[in-house]
Each structure stands twice: as structure tokens, then as C-alpha cells.
Amino acid sequence: MLTLYHWEPVAGSALPLIALTEKNLSFESRFVDVLRLEQLEPEFLALNPQGQVPVLVHDGRVITESTLMLEYLESAFPQPELAPKTADDAYRMQVWLKFVDEYFAPALALLGWHRFGAAQRAALDVSQARKAIARLPLERQAIWKMALEDSYTDEQLDAARRSLELRVPRVEETLAATQWLAGARYSLADIAVFAMLKPLPRLLPELVNRASTPRISAWLETIARRPAVTSVLGKARAAEPDATFAPGPEPGRWG
């Protein structure tokens, strides 16, 4: 039996939602309202002490980390295939999955929350939030403290923007060379990077737009039209999913 604890079909939560749907797997969906800090409730922390969605429970086994969850689903449910067969293409797919964790996810969470999080911050009961955050590991507490206060430094915001400015062109170049990110077939790399880049035309329109990144724009549209992806995105509760962000993983500390 599969149970997925997830938030809106954005960022990390979108990854397993899309993969499970692509693989036609039935699963129990448990919505965790991240902006109401439900992921910091003791019952959720018992599943994942990091207080992060998504979490997959498969026959009692707890699987965390959205990109690695995709690879788990691929090895546990190989059909239909969403990973390349050759070592070359599998390497390329894994590099993209690592890029999502190392660069895309932290930069987007930081910039997105800074830009669109004001209303969510205002809606939070701050003293309640501080109490809940104290249940997290120290480094996650530090991320939430900055997020609640929106106290990011210019250096952090610049570093996040530079990180995306450096990596988004690599997506465009790759799509000029091959139809999909890891070669000739749609794979987990496309699912994960799609979820990251989807809000960018709105968040950083100067970076992702039809003129300067035509291939990314077309690729985003092609993926959004896939029946599985359309179905997942259609279940969003938020009025504006592309402007829906939450504090995310920690940006790199030492190059």
C-alpha cells in the first residue's frame, strides 16, 4: 500500500505526485498544509524529523527526499519506464536530480518565499510558529527563522539568483541537443526539473521567456499537456500555484 503525504502540486510535492500518476499507481493522498505548519506537528515529525514534505509510506517503509523518492518509485514499480536504460543517460538523469536538490530547490524556495510569501507570513500566528519550529533540527530552525522574518541578506538573494542564472541556460542547451533532459525519452529528470522551472516565467520572467529560452518554454508546455501532469496540476487548491512557495532546503554552505 502507498500513502503520500504532500502539499500543493508544486516544488518537491509535485515530483512524486506526477510520477505516481504517470505510473498509474493508486495511492492514499494525505494533504499536509505546509502554510499552516502541519508538517511541524508531532505526528508528522514522527514520520520525517526534518519536517519536510513529501513523504511516501510504502508497505510501512518511510521514503523521504523527493528526487530519491522518484528513483525509489522507478525501482519498485518499473513500468511504465521513467528512467533510461543506458549508463550514459542514467548518469545524465542523476546529475539533473542532484542539481534539483543542490541548486534549483533551495534557490527557488528562497526567492519565491521572499517575493510571494508576505501574505502567508502575515497569516501565521508567530508565537505559535516559533513554538512549532523549535521541534526541528537546528539547521531547519535557522531556515524557518529567516523565512518568518524575511531576513534574507542581499548576498543570499543574489547567490540564489546567480545560481539560477547559471543553471537555467544549461537546461536550454541540453534541450537544444536532445529532446528530453536525459536523452531521447521523457524521464524522472524532466519531471523534477519541470516542477522547479514551472513557476520561473512568473518569478524571473527575464530569465525564462519565449524569446531567450524558447526550448524551455516549449518543453514546459509539452510536459504540462501530458495527461498525468495535467491531472496532477488540476488538483491544486491554491488560486495561483506558480506564486505558491514555502521555505525549502538549505542553500549550499561551502561551494
Binding site: 521514503i63 527526499e65 528513483e71 525501482s75 542532484k98 536538490d101 554552505r253
Partner: peptide, 25 residues
Amino acid sequence: DPYALWRMRKWCRYMDLYLCPALAM
């Protein structure tokens, strides 16, 4: 085994993105 394989990759991520930067610093 898929679960052991996931655990292997999780330890690798933990090292690459969390522990190795701390030790390298």
C-alpha cells in the same frame, strides 16, 4: 532491493550536500 537502494542514495545525498561541505570547511 529498492528500499536498500534508496537508503544508499540517501546516505550519498546526506554526505554530498550536508556533511561533506561541513567537513571541507
